[in-house]
């Protein structure tokens, strides 16, 4: 067993520097690496280029980094529900690259898989395709999209072990598995670190080979963005 376990978030984030490109897992506030984000705020790193589907809300998730102007550029698919983000974007303080959600996921997966680029129909005929190579296959048009290149990837899983094996829960899975191994260093934080051998190999979503560092997160608020219920 190759041991990937580090003691805490501080050790897990060693080597992260201002100006780096980072991937951050999660969809909305579900499945975000809360501990890594909190540490990035504490480290006061700036000029970060951040690849994440969403940008958090004003006082949680990536919104915490935005509020302190630590992010130079966001690469996302949907950034509603964050007033500070919208203000910084419209005023030009923040660079924003909006790309289709499936393209975002595939750019992660390609980086993980050693595929330099791929064709997708998403965005053909729109401003997303501007300046990009397009090509027809059969009777349909496609846009060439390139794999991401990132320095660090921060993901969050439900359970993990010292070997770096991960299991995700519910829709908190989202982009997290696709970002594992998609950057030079992948840091996984887990809600529950279990003893080696306890995870059933049949049930593991991401094998430890994709992970360089894993740690037990100290706190998880797991905030709900849109609490919606029905009556009995």
């Amino acid at each position: 067993m190759i041991n990937k376990k580090v003691l805490n978030v501080k050790d897990a984030l060693k080597g992260v520097k201002s100006g780096m490109t980072i991937m951050v897992g999660g969809f909305g506030l579900s499945g975000i690496p809360e501990n890594a984000i909190e540490e990035l705020v504490k480290l006061e790193l700036t000029e970060l280029i951040c690849i994440s589907n969403n940008a958090g809300v004003d006082d949680f998730g990536l919104g915490l980094l935005l509020k302190k102007h630590q992010i130079k550029k966001m690469i996302s698919s949907y950034v509603g529900e964050n007033d500070e983000f919208e203000r910084q974007m419209l005023s030009g303080e923040l660079e924003v690259d909006l790309i289709p959600q499936g393209t975002l996921a595939e750019k992660c997966r390609s980086a993980q898989s050693g595929i330099p680029a791929f064709y997708t129909p998403a965005g053909f005929g729109t401003e997303v395709a501007q300046g990009k190579e397009t090509r027809s296959f059969g009777d349909k048009m496609y846009v060439l999209e390139h794999a991401f290149k990132a320095d660090f990837s921060f993901v969050k899983a439900w359970k993990g072990d010292e070997a770096g094996n991960l299991i995700f829960k519910g829709t908190a899975r989202n982009f997290n598995p696709n970002m594992c191994g998609a950057a030079k260093i992948t840091v996984a934080e887990v809600e529950e670190m279990v003893p080696l051998g306890e995870l059933d190999p049949n049930q593991i979503h991401i094998p430890g080979i994709f992970i360089q560092r894993i740690f037990q997160g100290s706190t998880f608020e797991k905030r709900i963005e849109q609490r919606t219920t029905r009556k009995k």
Partner: peptide
């Protein structure tokens, strides 16, 4: 949607609703 008290942060739709 879940009944009140049964919401799960790990279980949402694309609109971020529980």
């Amino acid at each position: 949607f879940p009944l009140e008290g049964e919401e799960d942060a790990d279980l949402i739709n694309a609109g971020k609703q529980t």
